[in-house]
C-alpha cells in the first residue's frame, strides 16, 4: 500500500538492518567475551528468543494499530495483569468445579472478554468525551491496576493447571506455543491493517482526521474497535504467558506499555499517527529482545540492558529523523 515511496522502504528495512547488526555483533563479541561456550546464534537460543518476545510482541501489534490510528494506550500493562487474574482465578471458581478441564476454554474466554471490555471502555471514553487518549488511558492504567490490587491485595494469585501448562509448553513443528500465537497475531493484524477497510480507514484517520471525517468515515467507531483490539491482545498475551507460569503478582505487566511503545517506535511507527507497519513492529520487538539476550549473553546485568536499549531507541529515532529530513528536501521542489 505504501511502497510507492523510497523512504518508506528504507525506513521499514532499517529495523531489519539493525537486527542483522545485532546478530553479527553478539556472535562475534560473544565468541570473545561470553562465559558460555555455546554460540549466540544457537537454534535453541533463537527459538527461546521468539518465545520470550511473545508477551510484549502480541501487545505491540495492538499498540501499532492504536498508534497508526493516532492514539496511544497506556493501560495495556494493567489490562494484562487484570486478564491474568481473571484467567487464573476463574480456573478455581466452584461453579466450574464439575467440568474438569473444560474450564480452560471458559477461563480463556473470560480473560479475553475482560480485555475486550476494558479496551472498549477506553475507546468509548476517548470517543465520547474527546479527551486525549494519552490522558484517558493514563487514568485507566491507574484504575485497572487498582482493580488488580482490589482482587487479592498484595497477594499473588496462583493456580497451576497441568493441562494448561502442558499446552503452553508444547511445541508444534518445533516452535513454542507462545511463538505461534505471536506469529498468528502478527499475520492477522498485518492482514487487517493492509487489506481491510478498517485498516485503511485507521491509517486515514491517523494521518488526517479532518479529511477522514470529510470523506464520511465515522472516526469514533474505528477508534473504539482499535481499543478493543488492543485490549483483546493484552489479554491474549496474559493468557499465553500465565497458562504456563500459573502465578500472577499484582505488579505484573508494569512498564509493559512503555516496552510495547518502544518496540513500536523502534519499528518506525510515528507517534503522531498515519504511518507505521505491523511487520516493522515485529522487527522492533525482535530487536529489543535480541539486545536484551545479547547483553545478558555477554554477561551484562539488567540495568546495563535498560541503559543500552534506551540509548539505542534515541539513536535509531535520530537516524530516522535524519533520513526523513533528506527525503523531505528531495521531494519538495
Amino acid at each position: 500500500m505504501k511502497n510507492g515511496n523510497k523512504t518508506v522502504i528504507l525506513k521499514s528495512s532499517a529495523i531489519w538492518g539493525f537486527i542483522v547488526v545485532e546478530l553479527i555483533f553478539f556472535s562475534v563479541a560473544g565468541s570473545f567475551l561470553s562465559l558460555s561456550d555455546k554460540a549466540f546464534m544457537d537454534l535453541n537460543n533463537m527459538l527461546l528468543l521468539f518465545k520470550q518476545s511473545a508477551p510484549i510482541g502480541i501487545i505491540a501489534m495492538g499498540m501499532t494499530v492504536i498508534m497508526i490510528n493516532g492514539n496511544i494506550d497506556l493501560s495495556v500493562g494493567a489490562t494484562f495483569a487484570l486478564a491474568a487474574i481473571v484467567l487464573l482465578d476463574s480456573l478455581t471458581w466452584p461453579i466450574f468445579a464439575g467440568i474438569g478441564d473444560w474450564v480452560i476454554p471458559i477461563s480463556w474466554a473470560l480473560a479475553l472478554l475482560t480485555g475486550v471490555v476494558v479496551g472498549a471502555l477506553n475507546g468509548l471514553i476517548v470517543w465520547k468525551t474527546g479527551v486525549d487518549a494519552f490522558i484517558v488511558t493514563l487514568g485507566s492504567m491507574l484504575g485497572y491496576r487498582g482493580l488488580v490490587f482490589m482482587y487479592h491485595g498484595e497477594q499473588p494469585t496462583s493456580h497451576l493447571n497441568w493441562t494448561l501448562v502442558d499446552f503452553a509448553e508444547a511445541h508444534f513443528l518445533g516452535i513454542d506455543t507462545a511463538t505461534w500465537f505471536l506469529l498468528l497475531v502478527t499475520l492477522v493484524m498485518w492482514i487487517v491493517m493492509r487489506h481491510t477497510v478498517h485498516g485503511r480507514n485507521a491509517y486515514a484517520i491517523g494521518d488526517n482526521r479532518e479529511a477522514a471525517v470529510n470523506a464520511g468515515i465515522r472516526v469514533g467507531p474505528h477508534m473504539m474497535i482499535n481499543f478493543m483490539i488492543i485490549g483483546f491482545l493484552a489479554a491474549l498475551s496474559a493468557v499465553v504467558f500465565y497458562s504456563e507460569s500459573g502465578s500472577v503478582n499484582p505488579n505484573d505487566g508494569e512498564l509493559y506499555e512503555l516496552w510495547t511503545i518502544t518496540a513500536v517506535v523502534l519499528g518506525g511507527t510515528k507517534l503522531t499517527g498515519g504511518a507505521g507497519s505491523i511487520i516493522s513492529t515485529f522487527g522492533g520487538v525482535l530487536a529489543i529482545q535480541l539486545m536484551r539476550k545479547g547483553l545478558v549473553f555477554l554477561g551484562a546485568g539488567t540495568e546495563t540492558v535498560n541503559l543500552a536499549i534506551g540509548l539505542i531507541l534515541i539513536a535509531v529515532l535520530f537516524l530516522d529523523k535524519q533520513l526523513n529530513i533528506k527525503g523531505k528536501e528531495a521531494l519538495r521542489i
Partner: peptide, 8 residues
Amino acid sequence: GQGLVLGM
C-alpha cells in the same frame, strides 16, 4: 488540511 490524506 481537510481534503487529502497526504501520507496516502
